[in-house]
Amino acid sequence: APVARVPAGPFDTTEPPTPYAEAAGYNNYYEFGLDKADPARNAGQLRTRPWTVVIDGEVEKPLTLDVDTLLRRFPPEDRIYRMRCVEGWSMVMPWQGFPLAALLRAVNPTSRARFVAFTALHDPEQMPGQRSGVLPWPYVEGLRLDEALHPLTLLATGLHGRPLPRQNGAPLRLVVPWKYGFKSIKAVVRISLTREQPPTTWSLAAPDEYGFYANVNPDVPHPRWSQATERRIGEPGLGRRETLPFNGYAEQVAHLYSRMDLRRNF
């Protein structure tokens, strides 16, 4: 479906977007293999239609929606966000999507809802990487409810004005630009509001390396490398740029963590 072009929004970065070839050719998506080029090679067999998304848990009006119905109800808008991978590289992604908050408000969270749990598709037939035990499947992620309701938090359905490529998480993925990329779960099939903090795949796999919050933080190193700098994909030459607190979105989101020790809650 063609995507309506809207003027630059208040959260858009003016940095040059990463070209489509790199943005859709260099991906971490273990469901389709461990190499960065694997997802573009192996995701072609994923059937993105029909695609049903369930929104349930601590809500008054649970929903089971076809993704096209979802898109008609929540028309996508342009959002140009920085994306910082925990491995120390970054991109500028021109997404199309809609705020997760709009969807969450439509299902009326109960007063007991405190977190949002996300589940990705689990289908080893379509996702060859799931035939290996490299991670526990399906991929799961979670946000605190206030993080999920933040206007920066996006459900993306497009990239570079085109339908979202399969290797980037089609047909529906989360985008949380102030957190490391692994928080932004791809191929979402279920969104559940919960009372307790939900499990997240990488914090289960390596709890000393990847936490629940995973906010981009140049001052908290990964056990094996510094997070102070990053390599911007698509830029020529050697050298790295400085990583910004909350990936440059501190003004918008730092208040969410004002009473937290971010060294402990990494």
Binding site: P221, P223, S226, L238, R240
Partner: peptide, 17 residues
């Protein structure tokens, strides 16, 4: 070269990681 010959960061890497 990738670390821009940033000796502080390189030394931290070698000593702490």
């Amino acid at each position: 070269l990738d670390h821009g010959l940033n000796l502080g960061q390189i030394l931290e890497d070698v000593l702490k990681r």
